[in-house]
Nucleic acid binder design. Sequence first.
DNA 1: TTAATTTGACCGGC
DNA 2: GCCGGTCAAATTAA
Length: 342
Amino acid sequence: MQVISKVEQPISPKNDLMENISNHLERGQESAHQIRSFINERLGLKAEDRDALDRHSLMTLNSFQTVLSMLKASGFDQDENFMINNNKRKVDVLECLDQCKSEEISGGSCLSKEKRGCYKRRKSGQSWTTEVTNLTDDGHAWRKYGQKGILNTDYPRNYYRCTHKHDQGCQATKHVQQISENPIKYKLIYQGEHTCKNLHKTPSIILDESPEENSSFYLSFQTNNFPLAKRALNPSLFPTSAFNATTSSSMIKQEYTPIKVDSPPPVYNQYSSSSDNCPPSSSDITSIGLPSTPVSEQGDVISSAEIYSSTPSPYERDDDLFSLLLPSDHQYASLDDFWETL
DNA sequence: TTAATTTGACCGGC
DNA sequence: GCCGGTCAAATTAA
């Protein structure tokens, strides 16, 4: 049987990437301008101004960090190791669904209860394996659909599919598995291209002062889970089990666990489990303080680190992209440099 | 009520 | 038969 694409003109990963990069750059630059305005025009900062400065600083960092992570993930970072992912056991969901559709057309019931779990393994295809130590937003909304203990591994593997699998036929999937605890490290396996057009836009930085720790604040990028965030503000209201493998209705949300920030903060983005594509409103913004280590056994924490690819990266390094990240009148050697300058 | 997660069952590849 | 990946009913949360 011939396998056909689910969309007539699938959006390539490169297009997705460039769109995300563009969005993040715009946000970052906008925030940078705000910061500069504050610095230049309000030397005697009031508390509210300082808060605004902090907020914009974090937004800038978030945007830059996200873009850098994307560039790494796409192969721009030459310092990262690239390797071929020799995964031989793939699931060809497309093929299965095609078969199912054909069977449905012909009166079959591939997805009926009698044939639960119908699919075919993908013999080959795109996959990207990434090892990460914390979280970044890849710009897509994911839904967890499974968890499995893997042989010779200490932690279960978690399976995520694109939220738009059913409404748009997006076949992208992601596997997340914790591979070490100290330092905490996760292995991500992305499979399939995102064909959904409803990209989850860059989440807003959620900033607020913790009642317990006024000297620091917390970030969250939830888009529509205010109650959860508020609950998380008080650890006593947030059961420990919520971070275990078997709990929490919001594991996919925890996948992008907000973190406490004291100094140059790693910036985390939190996927929204919602299917809408709206940027979070101000009412969505809150702060949440979660355990410093996102302890989900599922390893639902994602970020950038070493990036590997099973296929030759379609992207070539473009130093102009990096230059776009930086103010025109100053070149920062790193995000740390950027932060220190702030 | 709706949506997301959990988890045992099921499937195909090896 | 084992193993990893997926499905979908049941459960949980918003």
